[in-house]
């Protein structure tokens, strides 16, 4: 079974890691969740029937593991309810985590975009990450998220709109400050 792990690792590990990282924004947590992804993969590889691509299957598991984690956290601690109140968290939760090095050394626009992504719902963020950061097609994204293709398009549109709203809002604030 180890060859399965090695093959998946070689082909997809960095993309998988990046996907989970952009969802959670926490490197240590990402490591724990990716570990759980691999454990689930190893346990269930025999039942993988090849109907979807290996990559789609792997990323579906990653998405499920991450969502499971979010849900478990939500139940565990009502104090973090705001964090998981996916409709409101953007308004309530300031992101105190330091910027990851990769983002910190990029330009201001990338840093802003990283912050704005947090304002999206988990579904919206998943779609935006897969579509634009991971460069997957609508069809692949739909397969991973278990959405219809039209739902991917709608969620993508809504996510982009959220980003735009925050970009505009911050720019307006900036202009007011300058004046």
């Amino acid at each position: 079974m180890d060859y399965v792990f090695e093959e998946l690792y070689e082909k997809y590990h960095q993309d998988l890691f990046q996907f989970v990282f952009y969802l959670t924004r926490d490197r240590t947590l990402t490591e724990d969740l990716v570990q759980e992804v691999y454990i689930r993969v190893m346990r269930s590889y025999n039942s993988f029937r090849g109907e979807s691509s290996e990559k789609t299957w792997l990323f579906s598991i990653a998405r499920n593991v991450t969502i499971d984690y979010f849900r478990a956290q939500k139940r565990k601690n009502n104090l973090v309810t705001q964090f998981f109140d996916w409709s409101k968290k953007g308004d309530f939760i300031p992101d105190h985590k330091p910027l990851p090095e990769e983002v910190a050394i990029k330009n201001e626009e990338s840093q802003e975009m990283y912050a704005y992504l947090e304002k999206c719902t988990v579904d919206q963020r998943s779609v935006l990450i897969l579509r634009f950061i991971q460069s997957l097609s609508i069809k692949e994204t739909a397969a991973i998220l278990g959405f219809s293709e039209s739902k991917v398009k709608t969620t993508q549109h809504r996510g982009l709109k959220v980003l735009k709203t925050h970009i505009e809002s911050d720019h307006l604030k900036g202009e007011a400050y300058d004046e």
Partner: peptide, 25 residues
């Protein structure tokens, strides 16, 4: 513009080795 910015987001790499992952899993 927003799509372009998203596409320009940096790659986030894992710096652990494959052997470390095998040990974890």
């Amino acid at each position: 513009y927003i799509k372009k910015q998203l596409k320009n987001m940096p790659k986030v790499n894992d710096d652990r080795t494959k052997e470390e992952w095998i040990e974890r899993v």
